[in-house]
């Protein structure tokens, strides 16, 4: 499956690595052009480093820098979409849809990866995923990219069945791990997670529903 132009649409610095880091590394190795459209700077995040090195007012600066480093590790570009953390669901949906559709029409990707709306746990994930799905639907059929959707909710498999795309990314684990570690302010909030072998194993497989699995 060759994807030349891939756009990833998630709301927070670190979503790109957790959900799609291995897949990105794989695409890049195969010569694809991947851009991360990052919705917010994660400025309302709860993790301030451990020991604490950020505060509410400086967190976005740290996270912007971490995102810069992570995207360098992954070998991709990023664009900041300019929304504020925790508030995407309160913006008028049509405005975000138009914003994304206009940009997608310019960029003409073969593939868009975003969150599965309603199954992505964080309200920003659900809201931006919803807008991205709508934006793709509004595009002319001949320009419409393929859509892969990342679900996080424990409820996803029960409600939606198994994702159509299950990718073993253990071959790219070193890159994904390195990118994860660049998200330093968030890293120690991840410690619990990363110390658990089963959770680590989960991160070595990346799963995506496809557009026709939407409901």
């Amino acid at each position: 499956m060759s994807k030349q132009r891939v756009i990833i649409i998630f709301p927070h610095p670190d979503d790109e690595t957790f959900g799609t880091g291995g897949t990105i590394a794989d695409f890049i190795e195969k010569g694809a052009n991947v851009t991360y459209w990052c919705g917010t700077l994660g400025d309302m995040g709860r993790n301030m480093g451990n020991p604490v090195f950020a505060n509410r007012e400086t967190l976005s600066t740290h996270r912007r820098k971490e995102l810069q480093e992570a995207t360098e590790v992954l070998g991709i570009d990023y664009v900041h979409l300019g929304y504020r953390d925790k508030t995407i669901e309160f913006e008028p949906l049509e405005e975000i849809v138009t914003h994304l559709r206009t940009k997608l029409e310019q960029e003409k990707p073969d593939l868009v990866i975003t969150h599965f709306p309603g199954y992505a746990v964080h309200p920003d994930h659900d809201a931006l995923g919803r807008a991205a799905v709508e934006a793709v639907k509004e595009m002319k059929e001949e320009e419409r990219p393929e859509l892969w959707l990342h679900a996080i909710s424990n409820q996803a498999a029960t409600d939606l069945g198994e994702p159509a795309i299950v990718r073993d990314v253990s071959e790219y684990w070193d890159t994904k791990w390195k990118a994860l570690r660049t998200h330093l302010s968030q890293a120690d909030g991840m410690v619990d997670l990363l110390n658990r072998e089963d959770q680590l194993e989960r991160l070595k497989t990346e799963r995506f529903y496809t557009g026709d699995q939407l409901r």
Binding site: R46, N47, M48, N50, V52, N55, R56, E57, G189, D192
Partner: peptide, 19 residues
């Protein structure tokens, strides 16, 4: 010159802030 106050848990996660 802003007064930033916060409460963190043992993992450095913000629980409350008043600025």
């Amino acid at each position: 010159n802003r007064l930033l106050m916060a409460g963190h848990d043992e993992q450095g996660r913000l629980m409350v802030a008043l600025e």
